[in-house]
Amino acid sequence: MDGLKHADIGAWKYIEEQRHAYFDKMQVWDYTGLGYTRYNAKDVDQDILGCVVENKVLQSSQLSCFQESDLQKTIYPARLNSMDMLPSSSLTGLGEVPSTTDLFMRGRLAKLELSDGNNVYAKLVVGADGSKSRVRELAGIKTTGWNYSQNAIICTVEHSVENFTAWQRFLPNGPIALLPIGDKFSNIVWTMDPTEASDRKTMSEDDFIKAVNDALDYGYGPHPETTTSSPGGLSWLTGDVTISGKERFETPPKVVKLSSERMMFPLSLKHAKDYVSKRVALVGDSAHTVHPLAGQGVNLGFADASALSKAIAEGIALGTDIGETNLLKRYEAERKPANIAMMAVLDGIQKMYAVNFGPLNAFRAAAFHGAHYISPLKKRIISYASGDQSLPLFS
């Protein structure tokens, strides 16, 4: 969750009035007992690594910010039926003060026909309507990608103690994440094959809680063995032990109650071939969807929105038509390479954990240990996760 961008637009004060959770630690490990790493805010001289905010809180906070602003605004609670763009035409033969229809006929506006019968005209249409984007479809922008043979189960759970750590464990069929959202509550994002997901969604609450606790503890395999330096070289220690006198593997807090319904959705990788066309720009899931294993999908969308806002502001300052493709291409040029790089990293990790193979398990363990013990790499990963840097391995 990129709090800085929400602070910039004035939405953060509304978020802080609702449920949210700052976290200062992240722990990532795998079911083989070979791979483990832990990140602390203090490693980069920070008090926190990030903040987890529920989608409904984000939406209500942004809406409150928008409604209380001095901006002229109209909200249409309707679906988009059609979108028309006319090519630019000659300016002759029209009045000195052209009407909205005149500007549309000149190709200076997009025309949106809504399901409630209203027509809306705009210099720029921003498609922020998700992975099944109607704006993208009507603009004729194609996508590439594939479906993963995985579904995700998401829900809210309750603990007997407060949680201040973001946890993720890689299991044979996909990762499970436990993310604090405030008080004694956390969100679960659990990836698995579709058959298992259907079973997890319909099983009793008690059985589901037991399965979650099992997945976050000794289920599927042992706790990681962690290494510490000693005068004689490397010594191997198991369980809740101190690493170099400073860090230790910890077991996540037990789940005691299911606090929401369980939702299930299929996972896919999808990328728009173009982010922009004349008078149209795509942001977030409308332009790209990624595997949720690192929780970066929404942050990529925030970065898109920030970059597009910057391009629009530059266009207004220069007196440029904000719907012109040449202006919008600046946004695409900034975001497309960064998004493709992140998609490649996440897809690679997903594929690497889709196979249980001895040599590959050892390679994954080495990657974990590098992320844990190589200080510069660890700091860059933390800086990226907390939103301070771009991709740690590609900048």
Rank of each mutant, 00 (worst) to 15 (best):
G348A: 07
L328G: 02
I243K: 01
F104K: 06
S89H: 11
N118A: 15
V283W: 00
Q389I: 11
E324I: 00
G358K: 10
V241N: 11
F249H: 14
V120D: 11
E247H: 13
K111Q: 14
Y36L: 05
H271P: 00
G95S: 13
L308T: 06
A272S: 15
E16P: 02
P376F: 02
T251K: 14
S306K: 13
C65W: 09
E158S: 14
A294S: 09
Y36I: 02
A362P: 01
K201I: 10
T143K: 07
K42M: 06
P77T: 10
F357D: 04
Q150K: 07
R248Y: 12
R134S: 11
R136C: 05
H288P: 01
D102R: 01
G233K: 10
Y373L: 02
K329Q: 04
G301I: 11
N40C: 10
A317R: 12
P224Q: 08
W236Q: 12
G182V: 08
E324Q: 11
Y384A: 12
G245P: 03
L171H: 04
V157E: 06
C65D: 06
S286G: 06
V189R: 01
N147F: 09
Y36W: 15
T143N: 02
V135E: 05
P77F: 06
K310D: 14
H159V: 08
